[in-house]
Design a protein around this nucleic acid. Structure first.
Lengths: 178, 178
DNA sequence: CAGCGATGCGTACACTCGTACACATGGGAT
DNA sequence: ATCCCATGTGTACGAGTGTACGCATCGCTG
């Protein structure tokens, strides 16, 4: 809003919340744990975010922006000559290459919308935004199905503790893309 | 394992846990809330399930059995003449027809494996079992992809608050099935 | 420069939770 | 018949939580 003594404070609290969720999961997220991680007093977190849901909304939105940037950087996605399925499968490969940590964190925030209606609009923003990005290469319905399949593949890896198989992902994404 | 004064007690606690998760989510699951729902004293829940993870494992396993039974009942899944994609899309239609409650509950238990390694083997059991069932109609890789796509479609419905579109699901499942 | 609202800070309270533990009881083994 | 242990019960404690509230401090506004 207007000026603040510490204009960065709100943002630093969001960053701290993301680190806390990454380290301890949403179950470990509390006003106090965030305050400690951000090195601000307890009252400061409750002032900027009246409820934990508000904080989660901000964290999910930032997480979405991070991923969206990764996809925008992938120029090949807009190149009509490139193999769309292969590009997407490669993207997921990079996504998992840095360990499960990042994927776990971002999916945990995303999946939190299941039980928190307040998060659903933000989750929908991400789905719609990504679908629009992919719509430059296919029709909207196919774009949504590609996202669904990517989500499902990631979940199988994350939930069962398996390994990501890029060739398999490429094959199946290719079938959907047609 | 051997005789108990109340041989049903353990089972009743699991049922109560499922009801609690359905009503308040995993976040609302505690030894006390389960004990109240099952109408047993607090000490009884901590005796049968040393940790909440143990209780979640039992609940997820029971939830899996419920869904597996639904799939077994669907004889068309083994009929080589039937349209596999159409059958699966119809199955999901029934799944959502009774409201979001049941799907929310079962997915919440399933997704809990993301942050609880103890649940991953149980989640993997479900994936493997379903894949095996579907393998009577296609190759194993395609079976897994069908499950992934179904998971992704369900998630899009549940996370964004949208409606389930059976025709769309059938079309996309058909592309994967080939 | 005076005042006022936004922002920041510290503390206290009521509540829930997991856990531990002492004790009761019934059933199967010897 | 006796004993032992799995099972069942009640209570207490310490830790952690959300929330509220009073006070401090800064910056804009008039």
């Amino acid at each position: 809003m207007t000026r603040r003594y510490d204009p960065e404070r709100r943002g630093r609290i969001i960053d701290a919340a993301i680190r806390v969720v990454g380290a301890k999961g949403i179950a470990g997220l509390s006003h106090r744990s965030v305050a400690a991680e951000a090195d601000v007093p307890l009252g400061s977190t409750t002032y900027h975010f009246a409820s934990l849901d508000e904080l989660l909304i901000a964290a999910l939105r930032r997480s979405n922006e991070n991923f969206a940037e990764v996809m925008r950087e992938c120029e090949a996605l807009t190149d009509p000559a490139a193999d769309l399925a292969g590009e997407l499968a490669g993207l997921l490969g990079e996504y998992f290459s840095g360990g499960r940590g990042r994927a776990e964190l971002e999916y945990e925030l995303y999946l939190a919308a299941l039980r928190r209606p307040a998060l659903r609009p933000v989750a929908a923003e991400w789905t719609d935004g990504t679908a629009e990005l992919l719509s430059r290469r296919t029709d909207p319905a196919t774009a949504r199905a590609l996202i669904a399949l990517m989500d499902g593949i990631c979940l199988q890896v994350l939930l069962t503790g398996g390994e990501y198989d890029e060739a398999y992902a490429r094959e199946m994404l290719g079938r959907v893309a047609g």
